[in-house]
Design a protein around this nucleic acid. Sequence first.
RNA 1: GGGGAUGUCGCCAAGUGGUAAGGCAACGGACUUUGACUCCGUCACUCGUAGGUUCAAAUCCUGCCAUCCCUG
Length: 353
Amino acid sequence: MARVIIGLSGGVDSAVAALLLKEQGYDVIGVTLRTWQSDDGSESRCCEIDDARATADVIGIPYHVFNCLSDFDEKVIKPFIDDYIHGITPNPCVVCNREVKWERLLYHANVLQADFIATGHYASVVKLNNGRYTVKQASHIEKDQTYMLYRLSQEQLSRTLMPLSDMTKEEVREIAKKAGIPVAGKPDSQEICFAEDDDYAGFIKQQTDGKVPPEGNFVDESGNVLGRHKGIIHYTVGQRKGLGIALGHPVFVKEIKADTNEVVLVDEEDLYATRVTCRSLNFMGIEKINACEELTCNVKLRYRHKAQPATVRLLGPDRVEILFDTPVKAPTPGQSAVFYDDDGCVLAGGIIE
RNA sequence: GGGGAUGUCGCCAAGUGGUAAGGCAACGGACUUUGACUCCGUCACUCGUAGGUUCAAAUCCUGCCAUCCCUG
């Protein structure tokens, strides 16, 4: 009987994933990685231990909690803060999945002599004809989570099971309810798991003892001063709300200039771009992109967006340019660009410059 | 000192005698394993101020106040 370690977040998805695996005959061990604990002792939304333990009890599987607070701090929190201070908008969940969740689950799988690790993500792991592993978009595209998984390694994928790939949220809740799982009605997870009250800027200030970039100017593309901003950590490219500036028509953040401490505002139509470059690539469904070769694919620039047709070309050892068939709105430095084939399999991805 | 202009929600701004449009911003909610976007909803019993005319005024008249411009 194959043994599998499942990461239980305390939410309904991972609970049902565990239940399904057990029903399929796996020897299932539940694990929660404690990644974050706020000052008042409450747990983050990615690791609610009481709920996870209760879930494991109901399903009837062994359960362990592993601390990885320092790992999470080092690999997720620190880079997250550093990015914002430099005017970049990171994807903490992308980093966390590869560097913390999968890394640690695999480690403990080895220690506990498990064959696989599993999670409650809405996506599936597939092995392509070229021998490579990749993640494929969930059947119900609304819940698809492949965007957050594109940085996983081949080794990680080769040992990963994701039982929820073809399920809808409703089906998952229904299964949880029938099985008497206590978190069946729990709301979906959302927002950054470690920042309380969804106040990431406040979180950064607190973590850095207030040593964040100071107030500065809002400027237009010609450099004319339009007003004052609260400090660049409060903004992200494409942002409209929270600017506190009334020009009679909506304006959006086009660029954050960390070097001059300026935030560039433009009209909506000036937010579009056809060419986007990115670096720090991770290859998944393909091994690499050759020089002079063009990769035709669909590219997703943010989590909740549809992938758009584009052509990707190599620019350097770890750098590509993406040329979209039609202009895309507000490509944002620090966010990920994920390349999909027409079947919804991830081919590769990188970080927007 | 004299002349001119303007004062309507945080900003811009309709309204010119019939009982306060709209845009922006803001706030609330929905959506969401990142940040955003988007969507929905809320937002002046009151029109610089004090009087007057009128059945009725932000809209007409008078005084005052404030701001801006021109001229000395």
